[in-house]
Amino acid sequence: MKIAGKHAVAAERQEVWQLLVDPEVLRRCTPGVEELREVGDGEYDVVMQLGVGAVRGRYEGRIKVKPEEPGTTMRLDVEGRGSQGIVRGKGVLRLEGENEGTEIAYEGEVQLGGPIASVGQRMLQSTARMLAGQFFTALAAEAAARQRARVTGQPLRPPKHGILRNFIRFLWSLLKRWFGR
């Protein structure tokens, strides 16, 4: 199943890039992450609680982050396995923009395997979009927190990303995108 989208982050491109390669930030921003451990250059072992509504499962797997063109293009590869099956995603992130704002365009493919493959595929695209939305919303909040820290000179306080909190942020960003003229 192919997915694609764009998200705006109010920060410079280089800064957004730095956030994306920071394991701590990844851990905080990736929805449902319980554990994230760096096991190699840009490779992380991860334990996630993934799901939507009543459908939830625990997945163990690996995230690979591979800068293709540092500062602009990055490949992502995620695979998680749980008793419900396998969740697999591959994609490319492209960062565009100068100065104040960065637009992150993503495109990729998500797949389900094993027991969940047939019953889950009907929800796959919506769920993947929702989770991607949560990730980028969290990332934007991280960027905002850094900016705030710079402006105020206060120490950096990483934001908290509850699923609902992220979700509201995500909705807000959508609203701004649609009606924000």
Binding site: Q111, L112, G113, G114, A117, S118, V119, Q121, R122
Partner: peptide, 15 residues
Amino acid sequence: YDEWGQLLSGDLSSY
């Protein structure tokens, strides 16, 4: 089956 060999018609909600 998708190209990954996954059975997408594996239950009576999709078949």
